[in-house]
């Protein structure tokens, strides 16, 4: 881990001092346990701020979307994949980005930690040798790290960035995981029950749009829910309105989502937002053998028209 952190700093320093980039976007220590915060480094001497650990959970590709300068960005597997999608969709200029790829060891899900602590506040956390030590007022507990890994990481097959300009550290082995196992129960339910389940989940939504804002693929200049002249959809937090927001968003990221899990991590109401999109990801895999963000050349199935498309959905 420290190895990777040092290599990230070295790579960043080199890029800045050789003036290959104007800015590095990476992570620095946060103000709370198990947190890091995005940081922007433009001086070579400041690269020591950069950290690398299991709490580097923001998808930094979001910060590349509006930049005019040359930027070096620290990217895990999923981050690099979303950058790839954005490059393909011409939202990020490939020539202006240097991807500092880093092997991901899985992110810690703060919500799982909170659930485990059941109301007790976490004051300090240390991670060592696959173990996590949680300290607070009157408790010190040690758990296997794997108990708290984000669900999106547990089903990830691309911990090493598939595209990068500089690779830091050593590549990790990719896990053979059941990518879609987590939605099997939901899929097995009758439509009515699934509907009830989504209603219950999305009813918690307060429309803070954290899911949209952290999503690297939500880059529309004006999101459909923000259209006001005329208004396209209801803006209240009634279920019918929130449902439309989430379902349209799911449609919009279908075939593009890399399942970085940023939406689920950001949701203050603990809505499992990944679940809605995971199914579309599965369909893309089954029908088109397509996984988003693995290549800069392959045209995404939903981005092209083929005369011989099976079109079996048209009956």
């Amino acid at each position: 881990m420290h190895n990777v952190e040092n290599s990230i700093r070295e790579a960043a320093k080199k890029l800045l001092s050789e003036k290959k980039v104007d800015l590095i976007v990476g992570y620095e220590r946060g103000t709370l346990p198990l947190r890091t915060t995005p940081c922007f480094v433009d001086k070579a001497e400041d690269v020591r701020k950069l950290v690398w650990n299991e709490n580097c959970d923001a998808n930094l590709s979001k910060y590349l979307l509006s930049r005019k300068e040359n930027v070096g960005v620290v990217a895990k597997g999923c981050d690099a994949r979303s950058i790839a999608v954005c490059i393909f969709e011409k939202q990020i200029d490939k020539e202006k980005v240097v991807i500092i790829g880093a092997p991901c060891l899985g992110l810690i899900d703060k919500k799982k930690v909170k659930a485990k602590l059941d109301g007790r506040e976490l004051l300090e956390a240390t991670i060592e040798d696959e173990q996590i030590r949680l300290k607070g007022e009157g408790f010190e507990l040690v758990f296997p790290k794997k108990d708290f890994i984000c669900n999106s990481c547990l089903t990830c097959r691309h911990r090493n960035p598939p595209i990068y300009d500089v690779f830091t550290g050593e590549k990790v082995s990719e896990a053979e995981v059941d990518e879609f196992g987590e939605i099997a129960d939901l899929e097995a339910k009758p439509a009515k029950e699934r509907w009830e389940h989504f209603k219950e989940e999305l009813d918690k939504c307060i429309r803070c749009y954290a899911c949209r804002e952290v999503c690297p693929l939500c880059y529309c200049k004006t999101c459909f829910v923000d259209q006001t002249m005329p208004i396209w959809f209801g803006k209240t937090n009634d279920l019918s309105d929130t449902m439309i927001y989430h379902l349209v968003r799911a449609f919009h990221v279908a075939g593009r989502c890399v399942d970085c899990g940023a939406c689920s991590r950001a949701c203050p109401m603990n809505i499992n937002l990944r679940e809605v999109v995971k199914k579309t990801e599965k369909i893309m895999k089954e029908r088109y053998d397509y996984t988003a963000g693995l290549s800069l050349e392959k045209i995404p199935p939903l981005g092209e028209f083929k005369i011989d498309d099976s079109q079996e959905f048209i009956k």
Binding site: P38, C39, F40, K62, Y63, I206, R212, E213, V214, A266
Partner: peptide, 9 residues
């Protein structure tokens, strides 16, 4: 403001 993504949390 740079790191703020503009959500309403």
């Amino acid at each position: 403001h740079e790191k703020c993504l503009g959500c309403g949390v």
